[in-house]
């Protein structure tokens, strides 16, 4: 059985990245400081890859319920650039059940471009 999950749009601001740095312990300055980000060849302040992945996880768990994910992974193929005015990340997903195992294949985009690739969650019953 295949179910399309309703897409969701998440707003991301630099303030969110500060809160996430505090909560996760990841204080890499490329997520806060424009100058540092540019000095290592990035286009500007970028979201933590794990911030974007947390949004994808939130999408899955708000749909499936907490504590059901047994496997979760993604490749970070494009940075989510967060300008001063903020940006938006759009998450959509398709849930498939086969042989009693449910998987959610996610599409995560920013400005219409995929930022995660191979983003997939496996769920337990």
């Amino acid at each position: 059985m295949t179910t399309e999950l309703e897409p969701r749009t998440f707003r991301v601001t630099r303030q969110d990245l500060v809160a996430y740095a505090e909560a996760s312990g990841d204080h890499n300055p490329i997520h806060q400081d424009e100058q540092v980000a540019r000095s290592v060849g990035l286009p500007g302040v970028i979201a933590h890859g794990m911030y974007t992945m947390a949004l994808a996880a939130r999408f899955v768990e708000e749909h499936a319920g907490p504590g059901r994910v047994v496997g979760f992974g993604a490749k970070f193929v494009k940075p989510v650039v967060v300008p001063v005015e903020g940006t938006e990340v759009v998450v959509s997903g398709v849930q498939e059940e086969r042989d009693g195992v449910a998987t959610v294949t996610l599409s995560v985009t920013c400005d219409g471009v995929d930022v995660l690739r191979g983003c997939k969650a496996t769920l337990r019953d």
Binding site: P29, S39, V40, G49, G73, A74, K75, P79
Partner: peptide, 10 residues
Amino acid sequence: FRIVHGEQRF
């Protein structure tokens, strides 16, 4: 600051 995340799995 020279590190970016390429891939993550759990």
